[in-house]
Design a protein around this nucleic acid. Sequence first.
DNA 1: TTGAAAGCGCTACCAA
DNA 2: TTGGTAGCGCTTTCAA
Lengths: 343, 343
Amino acid sequence: MNGLGEIMSNKQSRRVTLMEVANHAGVSRATASLVARNSTKISNDTKEKVLQSMKELGYVYDRIAANLRSQTSTTIGIIITDVANTFFSELLLGVHQELEKFGYTVFLGTTFDSVDNQVKLISTMLEHRVGGIILCPVSSTSTETIERVQNIDIPMVVAVRELPFIETNYVGLNYTQGAKKATSYLLEKGHTRIAFLGGRSESSTWHERIEGFYQAHQNAGINVDSSLIVDSSPTREGGIEAVQTIINHPNRPTAIFCFSDMIAFGVIIGLRKAGITPGEDIEIVGFDNVPETEIVYPPLTTVSSFPQQIGAEAANLLHKKMTSDTNEKERIILQPELVKRDK
Amino acid sequence: MNGLGEIMSNKQSRRVTLMEVANHAGVSRATASLVARNSTKISNDTKEKVLQSMKELGYVYDRIAANLRSQTSTTIGIIITDVANTFFSELLLGVHQELEKFGYTVFLGTTFDSVDNQVKLISTMLEHRVGGIILCPVSSTSTETIERVQNIDIPMVVAVRELPFIETNYVGLNYTQGAKKATSYLLEKGHTRIAFLGGRSESSTWHERIEGFYQAHQNAGINVDSSLIVDSSPTREGGIEAVQTIINHPNRPTAIFCFSDMIAFGVIIGLRKAGITPGEDIEIVGFDNVPETEIVYPPLTTVSSFPQQIGAEAANLLHKKMTSDTNEKERIILQPELVKRDK
DNA sequence: TTGAAAGCGCTACCAA
DNA sequence: TTGGTAGCGCTTTCAA
């Protein structure tokens, strides 16, 4: 119920109704309805007649009314934090490809990483009777938000970022493993002073990564210098900011492991501005393997996080939950891969 | 009526209704409805009572039912060809930022550049009673498709690509001007053999660009070698393909004007694979100024096509058409800018 | 196979 | 300010 008063709405033009189609075709409304739903219990003759009338009158099926009556839903909602981030647009691609197969129509919401927006979007989607929700939660999502959806008993799949203290269907990546692989790669190349830049330290995805970062160091018997760990917003701008600390560091690292490719791009820009050559003076590794990593310079070694697959898995899991009625929660964790790119 | 039978739908859990809220609060359904809509004609006392009941019962407003009764819509649809293309995700960003202000919830559809998908998506959205549609049409959109929407009298804004032979609201860019600027830039740098790569030659956006390409040549008094014009699908893969012709050309051009940045990225990859250094052996100019052009190597000079503004303008225009009832069509054409980037 | 009547959850309209 | 009644466009249910 947040501020219904302010919501925009607009008059619609009158549509042709099923009743009118029925009259035009000389059958009852129920018969016309059966034809609209492609029922097999209608003689070919009447079917043709009705279809013809629909065409002539320009009839458009009112799925909203149908869903209301039959208490069903043909829509799902997907909520992401940022469309302009290729990670999420790739994820969206995966979701779309899967869900359109099943015939769902998808509501898209963008939170711009704001909790308020997220709450509002979830409300609006519930009010629009979505049959299910895929949520890529903002960092500081409250348990209450999730419980609200669970109480209404609408299937939800949380993707990308896992929420603490609450059991949900979840599709994500083994970030710890990914960070470990990336860090080990740098350590094996002989780096001993590695920075970890970017990402919000309150998010689970950050914690999992830092965990892998430490594990790799431990395996190699090398200590982590915690002054080389700098968090930031998970955007390119965040990367530009975070790298300043490194540039001004009295004892500069020789390599940087970035929270994400977006961060890495910011880091590259920031280093260049400071006259430091990324890839030569300082080695950089990213995370996500977004398409741009192929064409960026220096070529970016990164960890593939398979956003499209995450999207596809989330979509399938949601569909599964929407069509079965067990309340069991599932977790799907994809394994990351290191993508080495040399100059 | 395309294949209603195959459409997935799923049972929803029973919701708390306004009637139940009314009973719980000891008021009539009409009163509860007024509270839900934040009417001023309700005493604070009853309002509080009703709101309290809503909270206790976990009431969720059913906007679908409300819209059905009041013949309104709070949704709009946006149809794009490809989410993974940053041009479109930036456009989407602009649309979202504007439309969420007005309180619309947005349906997203992706055509993957298929006419069939486009027709299906438009149908589904109409069936879901969208109040308006923003359409970034696929290359070979039929007049019929557009007329279908116009007949139902639902406002539509066509964006990015203009359709011939049909009057619609349109938001786009002066592509001719952009192509002319880019080509002139290359000509002024002394290039006399310039290729034009990528894009579908049946689309208006291609024609407008080639027009600018020719105009620039004419102004400079230089002839165009039409064997250097190669079309392709408007994707990175398309760019990789198209550049093959240039690589194998007996008389190679010294510069390439690419249909889009996506094409340019493909061209860069293709040239590198063939052992040709982009930016040195052959100069490249793109079109769109997608964010990646900042970090790509070689730095890409490009034409800014302001996707986010296009999205925002389209959203505003749609809102305007949805709230006024003139049937007048408007055209908004943004002016492109050349963004020079040096190595 | 077709038809008549009831009702999904809400708002509009009129009366009190 | 509040309440009763009708009805948005469709499906459901039962009878013919």
